[in-house]
Nucleic acid binder design. Structure first.
Length: 481
DNA sequence: CGTATTTATCTTATGATAAATACGGTGCCATAAT
C-alpha cells in the first residue's frame, strides 16, 4: 500500500486497514480521472472521497441528492476534526449563505445539491476555485432521477466541463448494467471510465413472489406472515395512502408495533420514525420509495413489496436493504396483475405534460411571467433546462419520449422477474450482467418449489440463526402448519 | 387505468345500488402569506 495513503488513513481517520473496495477506489481516483465505484452500503463510501481529497490540491465538491445526507456527512467530517466542511443549500438563511459565499475559498469540502450548484451566485464563486475533486454521491440518481423529476441531475456533466474539473468520482451502492451505462453517458459524456465493483449477489436473501388476486388476500397474508415471522421488517407500498392503511391494519390485527413513512410527512416526523426504526423500536415499517437512501440498518429480516416496484433497479435496491448483517433474510413481492397500472399511469401523465409543454412554450415569447402562471413545476424546470442547456423544444420532447419508453421497458423487466418460472436470483444477476456460478442452497421459491407455499419455513421465527440444510427448513415448516 | 370515496337516485323514509368524482412517487428550490 502506498505509504502516503496509509499515513493519512492512520492519522486523519484512525484506521489501520481498509474495507473491501475502499483502497481500490482511492488508488484509482488518485491515479486516474473518471471513476465509478460501486460499493455496498456500510463499506464506508465517504472515506473513498475524503481520503483522496487530502492528497489532492484544491477543494472537493460533493454533490448529494438529499439535504439530510449532506448534513450527516458534514457532521461526520466534523467529528473527525475537519472544520473546513460546509453544506450549502436551502437550509441556510440568506445571511448564512452570504457568509459562506464570502469565505468560500477557505473550505476543503463543499456539499451541495445539484439544484443549488446551478445557482448563478454560487457557480460564480466556485468557478474561481481550484476544484481538485468532484464527487457525485448516490450516483444512480443520475439515471433514476433524471429529466422527469430532477432535471439538474442531467446537467452535471456540463458543469464539470464548465468548471474544468479533472477528477470525477461517482459513488453508488447499486448499479445495474442499465444504470452504469446511463452514468457513463450522462455524467461522463460517454468517455472511458474506471470501474470498481464487487459482486452484487446477495447470497443470504431468499426471493419469493406471492401471486394474490385481491387486496383482502394481501392484507391477510401480511397479517399471517408478520405475526409468525420475527422482524424487524420493511414493507414497501406504491402509494402514501397504502402505507397508512397497511400500518393501521397490522397494528390493529397483530401485536406488532408499526409505523408508516412517506414524502407527505414533515422532515421532523420522518427523522423521528427513521430513528425509531433504526433503534429497533418498531417491528415493521411501512413506507413508500421515499424511505431508504443512506439507511444502513444491519438486521432487517424481511422486505415485502405490497405492490411491484416500477423497475428491477428499485426492487434490487429496496430488497437489498434486508440482511446487511449477512444473516438469512427474505424478499417477498405480493403481486396482483392490476398493480402495474399505477406506474403506467405515471408514464402517461409524463407524456401529457411534455405535450402540453410543447404547445405552451411558443406562446410565452420568452415572457417569464407567463411561464410562472401557466406552467407546472416540472414544466418550469424543463423551460429553464432547455434555455440553459441550449436544447430545442423538439430535442427535449424527444428526450422525454425516450425516457417514457425506457420506463415502460424497465417495468416490463420487473414483470419478467415476477412471471418467471426459472431462478429469480439468476434473473436479477443477469440484469447486472453477472452469472451465478454456484447453485445456492437456499435461493428462491422457484428453486425450492417444495417449500415455497410460505417461505417462513426457511427461517427460525425466534432467532437469527441461519439453517444451512433444507431439511431443517422443511421440518420447521411442518411444525408451523 | 384501478381503487376508494362521495353524491345521486330510486321514492310515501331507510338504505341499497349506481353513477360521478378524486386521487395516485421520489425532493430540490423560492417565495408569498401568516
Amino acid at each position: 500500500m502506498n505509504e502516503e495513503i496509509q499515513q493519512v488513513l492512520k492519522q486523519r481517520f484512525g484506521f489501520s486497514s481498509f474495507k473491501k473496495g475502499q483502497e481500490e477506489t482511492i488508488t484509482k481516483i488518485l491515479t486516474r480521472n473518471n471513476v465509478l465505484s460501486i460499493l455496498p452500503t456500510g463499506t464506508g463510501k465517504s472515506l473513498c472521497y475524503q481520503l483522496p481529497s487530502y492528497l489532492l490540491s484544491g477543494v472537493t465538491i460533493v454533490v448529494s441528492p438529499l439535504l439530510s445526507l449532506i448534513e450527516d456527512q458534514v457532521r461526520q467530517l466534523q467529528r473527525t476534526g475537519e472544520k473546513q466542511a460546509v453544506a450549502f443549500g436551502s437550509q441556510l438563511t440568506y445571511q448564512e449563505k452570504q457568509w459562506v459565499l464570502a469565505h468560500i475559498a477557505a473550505y476543503k469540502f463543499i456539499f451541495i445539491t445539484p439544484e443549488s450548484l446551478f445557482q448563478e451566485e454560487i457557480l460564480q464563486r466556485i468557478r474561481q476555485l481550484d476544484v481538485g475533486l468532484f464527487v457525485v454521491d448516490e450516483a444512480h440518481c443520475v439515471s433514476t432521477w433524471g429529466i422527469d423529476f430532477r432535471p439538474d441531475y442531467e446537467r452535471l456533466a456540463s458543469i464539470i466541463q464548465h468548471l474544468g474539473v479533472k477528477k470525477v468520482l461517482a459513488l453508488t451502492a447499486t448499479a445495474t448494467e442499465v444504470v452504469k451505462e446511463d452514468i457513463r453517458q450522462k455524467l461522463f459524456l460517454g468517455q472511458e471510465i474506471d470501474l470498481v465493483q464487487k459482486t452484487v449477489n446477495r447470497v443470504n436473501i431468499f426471493y419469493h413472489v406471492e401471486k394474490l388476486s385481491t387486496v383482502e388476500e394481501k392484507l391477510s397474508w401480511l397479517q399471517s406472515f408478520c405475526s409468525k415471522y420475527s422482524g424487524p421488517g420493511l414493507i414497501y407500498c406504491n402509494t402514501r395512502r397504502d402505507t397508512e392503511e397497511v400500518s393501521l391494519y397490522l397494528s390493529g390485527n397483530t401485536t406488532l408495533k408499526t409505523a408508516y413513512y412517506h414524502g407527505g410527512l414533515t422532515s421532523m416526523e420522518r427523522s423521528a420514525i427513521q430513528q425509531q426504526f433504526l433503534a429497533d423500536e418498531l417491528d415493521v415499517l411501512i413506507a413508500t420509495s421515499a424511505f431508504g437512501m443512506g439507511i444502513d440498518k444491519p438486521n432487517i429480516r424481511y422486505v415485502i413489496h405490497y405492490q411491484l416496484p416500477d423497475s428491477l433497479e428499485a426492487f434490487i435496491q429496496e430488497s437489498g436493504r434486508g440482511g446487511r448483517d449477512g444473516l438469512q433474510t427474505l424478499s417477498v413481492v405480493l403481486y396482483m396483475a392490476q398493480d402495474q397500472k399505477v406506474h403506467q399511469y405515471f408514464q402517461k401523465e409524463l407524456l401529457k405534460e411534455i405535450n402540453d409543454f410543447t404547445h405552451l412554450v411558443p406562446l410565452t415569447q420568452n415572457n417569464d411571467s407567463i411561464v410562472l402562471d401557466h406552467f407546472s413545476e416540472l414544466q418550469k424546470k424543463w423551460y429553464d433546462f432547455s434555455k440553459s442547456e441550449n436544447h430545442s423544444i423538439e430535442n427535449l420532447q424527444e428526450k422525454i419520449k425516450k425516457r417514457v419508453e425506457e420506463k415502460a421497458e424497465k417495468l416490463a423487466r420487473m414483470e419478467d422477474y415476477l412471471d418467471t418460472d426459472g431462478c429469480r436470483r439468476e434473473k436479477i444477476l443477469s440484469y447486472f450482467s453477472e452469472t451465478s456460478t454456484v447453485q445456492q442452497e437456499i435461493c428462491c421459491d422457484n428453486c425450492h418449489r417444495e417449500i415455497s407455499d410460505f417461505p417462513i419455513g426457511l427461517m427460525s421465527p425466534d432467532s437469527n440463526k441461519k439453517y444451512s440444510k433444507l431439511e431443517k427448513s422443511k421440518e420447521i415448516l411442518k411444525n408451523l402448519f
